[in-house]
Amino acid sequence: MSQDAALIINNIFGGYFVKYNGSKYVDAVNDVSLLIRRNEIFGIAGESGCGKSTLLKIIYGYLRPPLIVKQGSVILPLKDEKVSILSLSEEERRRKVWWKVISWIPQNSMNVLNPTMRIKDNFVEIMRAHMNIAKKEAMEMAIDYLHKTGLPKDVINAFPHQLSGGMRQRLVIALALITKPQIILADEPSTALDVVMQRGVLQLLANSQRTLRNTIVMVTHDLAIHAMLCDRVAIMYAGKIVEIATSKELFEDPLHPYTQMLLASLPRLGDKELRQGIRGSPPDLSAPPKGCRFHPRCTYMKEICKSEPPLLVEADKEHFVSCYLYSGV
């Protein structure tokens, strides 16, 4: 295994067992393997409902019903041991992994802050729960830290509802960074914000990454954000990773038909050329199509695409794709 691996994700199968009119299984993450490196910003993109948040929860080991993992492992190589996150008990994860090594910024995380406490008390509480320090020490550290993050002074004494959404989101991110984690899992950290505030939030994340030289796994459906921020990007479709490449390759020379059609459908400022959407719609994950999950919408579909799922192959150096156009059947 590569020396510089931050996380090794092996053949994860996971989803939701829901009981509603009988029972069904939502196949949200299907045979996903990824190698995420140290000192990189790794993006995961894909449309609503394709399984991005589910994958992130599994990586973090936040397995609450009805979410289950059927198969696969998440390996976290530390200095002197390899931790297999999914084999730990939740208590062990809390003690060994969460916050200390990996911070998770969940989707819609603005409500992570307790509304009845001032910002500084919010910080102190989290720090005491995870860093094992005295209250006074935590308070000093929090104040010092908030100053360094460049947030205005009066924010420390404010209650969450007195701040704008953007400011709250910056605080949630600051909170996730305070323990200097090796890995940050960020789920749509700037989606609810306007573009100027979004830029501020993403700059905060990128700058911290540069200083700490750690790893960020950045989940968002917004491809432009990946283009501005990420070193490498994975495209997810209906629970499967269909393409992984460096940002440059992915945006300039996409290989998978889905990636190509998606990029071609996006209007760009300064360009009025007529664009087309992708026909059909993403599948219901409780009954995904057989074979390649994109085949009902794909214009290159062949007979084999309908029956056997294509494997993820390295079509070009560092450029992986899961499509029969590249695996030569």
Binding site: V195, Q198, A206, M228, K248, E252, R268
Partner: peptide
Amino acid sequence: ESLPTLDLRKREYYM
């Protein structure tokens, strides 16, 4: 100026 775009040449400026 704050609009993220698919054009990777805008990255440095965006930061």
